[in-house]
Design a protein around this nucleic acid. Structure first.
Length: 528
RNA sequence: GCCGCGUUCGUCUAGGGGUCCAGGACGCCGCCCUUUCACGGCGGUAGCACGGGUUCAAAUCCCGUACGCGGUACCA
């Protein structure tokens, strides 16, 4: 047995080695793409790029009842924002399209494969009504069957082309009776495959259901469409979420039933993304509850009009978002944590993807964004502020070089772009009021007089640079025989209204002599 | 219930029999730097789910238990 497995694995290895790597991301347009979905797309993308392969986007919309307006456009936009760009697929063209299953169905691409299975006695027609199915499951449960299924045993008591006579089946079909096509899972077989992340996964066929492959509405189910499309699109590796692991053996069996086992893709089932507190997978609700987005982009439900926040709108950089996602389930095995997309491609491998679900940590996510913000040049940050935050009045009221200098001053204490103009609002216009606590602690009776003297010193400066202001300030302290902590907070209070912030001399220099003196004068008269 | 997958600091994780009285990062705490806040530096807190094996030696291998998650649809 061991020898057999080894041989099988070796054969598989060779058969996929000489094929160009082709992977696909295949979401259903049933709503906005969840960050877990984006991560699946990302891992597919990284794997494809790493191996000079293709990354395709396929839309799996076989369930017409769950179609949501705008969801497909959302998927496209989200991937674009993240820089996870398909080089083939829906919206990108390619030789093996269409890339949308509803359109493929129009071309009748699926029915013939179901027919092939029917002809080879590997699938059968079933006429059972939903009520009959429910009844069967109930009866089996009552009879003490632990896992009621439509399988090799129970199928004999149902209405299908295995249990019914040929004449009866033909009559029903001719009559137009609704039917589905079910896969005929063999009764006693061990089905195994080697998952790239989990190793050997083995399930006995008695635990598999005779799943519906073709629905009575004429649409294939996911199971059929997925296998047929992956085969027709020459997919070499199926990288998807762990929720698919239970049906993977059935998919493996389907490849065998079709006679496609030699080109069957490899599987990698990704660990789930879990909610930050407690257990269970990350859901839309958790974001609302804990105050962080679970979607890449903001989304408004077309029916309920309910708005879900997005990483983009919250101020996350796409590079940071990708970096965050990459580290939820994968790590490079080194101490490096900040990775560009290129570096991720270079380092990515399934050997370093974990098996256990990863709890999402919003704090760590913020930290990543901060790292990216700090690593950008002042000019780049100014550009991004102007491009993405035109709702902020301040940034439009100054020249860009000035804005860039503000960014330089503020970026080390900010996490998001918008923090800069908010926390540094006083660099754009005088503060509305003075920080009460600082006034109480620092503004004494003699403060006004002291600041007037200091203003005179500033007035006499010819060069109003940070260095000159500092120099002048030092000699002022010496002259007055005062400590820096007595005087500087007053200066800061007058110019910024705050008790904290970046270097006071840099602030004064940035504001300029005239503005600095004006603020001092106004402040002194207000505070007395 | 049944089937499958999983389980190292609060969180993300390194670790694939000895070099681990378990390393890094986020968070938290303390100290230093600083007018202040932040940054930075230094230090600290805290973990191998449990029980049996195997072995001279186990976080690492095997079995079991517990717990968690996923699946159990004519949804994907």
């Amino acid at each position: 047995m061991v020898t057999l497995n080894f041989t099988f694995a070796a054969l598989k290895f060779y058969s996929t080695m000489d094929r160009k790597v082709r992977v696909r991301f295949a979401p259903s347009p049933t709503g906005p793409l969840h960050m877990g979905g984006v991560r699946t797309a990302l891992y597919n993308y990284l794997f494809a790029k790493k191996h000079d392969g293709d990354f395709l986007l396929r839309i799996e919309d076989t369930d017409q009842t769950r179609y949501v307006e705008g969801a497909e456009a959302y998927i496209q936009e989200a991937l674009k924002w993240c820089g996870i760009l398909p080089n083939e697929g829906q919206g990108y063209g390619g030789d093996v399209g269409p890339y949308k299953q509803s359109e493929r169905k129009e071309q009748d691409l699926y029915r013939k494969y179901a027919q092939q299975l029917l002809d080879e006695d590997k699938a059968y027609y079933a006429f059972d009504t939903p009520e009959e199915l429910e009844q069967m499951r109930e009866d089996l449960k009552k009879a003490g069957v632990a896992a009621p299924q439509y399988n090799a045993i129970s199928r004999m008591r149902m209405k299908n082309s295995v249990s019914l006579s040929t004449e009866e089946v033909e009559k029903r079909i001719a009559n137009g009776d609704p039917y589905v096509i079910r896969i005929k899972i063999p009764r006693n077989e061990e089905i195994k495959f080697k998952d790239m992340i989990r190793g050997w996964v083995s399930v006995h066929s008695s635990n598999l259901d005779d799943k519906v492959l073709y629905k009575s509405d004429g649409m294939p189910t996911y199971h059929l469409a997925n296998i047929v499309d992956d085969h027709l699109m020459n997919i070499t590796h199926v990288i998807r979420g762990e929720e698919w692991l239970p049906s993977a053996p059935m998919h493996v069996y389907l490849y065998e039933a079709f006679g496609w086992e030699n080109t069957r893709p490899e599987f990698a089932h990704l660990p789930l993304l879990l909610k930050p507190d407690g257990n269970g997978k990350l859901s839309k609700r958790d974001g609302d509850r804990l105050g962080f987005p679970v979607f890449p982009l903001e989304w408004q439900d077309p029916e309920t009009k309910e708005v879900s926040s997005g990483y983009r709108e919250k101020g996350y950089f796409p590079e940071a978002f990708v970096n965050i996602l990459a580290f939820l389930g994968w790590n490079p095995g080194t101490n490096q944590e900040v990775f560009s997309m290129e570096e991720l491609i270079e380092s990515f491998s399934f050997e370093r993807v974990g098996k256990a679900g990863a709890k999402y940590d919003p704090d760590k996510a913020r930290w990543f964004n901060q790292q990216y913000l700090r690593s950008k040049s002042n000019e780049a940050i100014a550009d991004e502020l102007l491009a993405f935050h035109d709702e902020i009045e301040e940034i439009k009221q100054v020249e860009k070089p000035y804005l860039a200098e503000v960014c330089g001053l503020m970026k080390e204490r900010a996490t998001f772009l918008a923090d800069i103009p908010r926390e540094g609002a006083y660099l754009f216009h005088p503060a509305d009021d003075f920080d009460e606590k600082t006034v109480r602690k620092k503004w004494k009776e003699d403060s006004a007089g002291l600041m007037e003297e200091w203003a005179d010193e500033l007035e006499s400066l010819n060069e109003f640079t940070a260095e000159k202001v500092e120099e002048s300030f030092k000699s002022f302290l010496e002259k007055k025989e005062l400590g820096i902590g007595r005087v500087l907070p007053l200066f800061r209070l007058l110019l910024t209204g705050q008790g904290m912030g970046p270097s006071m001399f840099a602030i004064a220099a940035l504001l300029g002599k005239e503005e600095s003196l004006k603020r001092m004068k106004n402040g002194i008269s207000t505070l007395g």
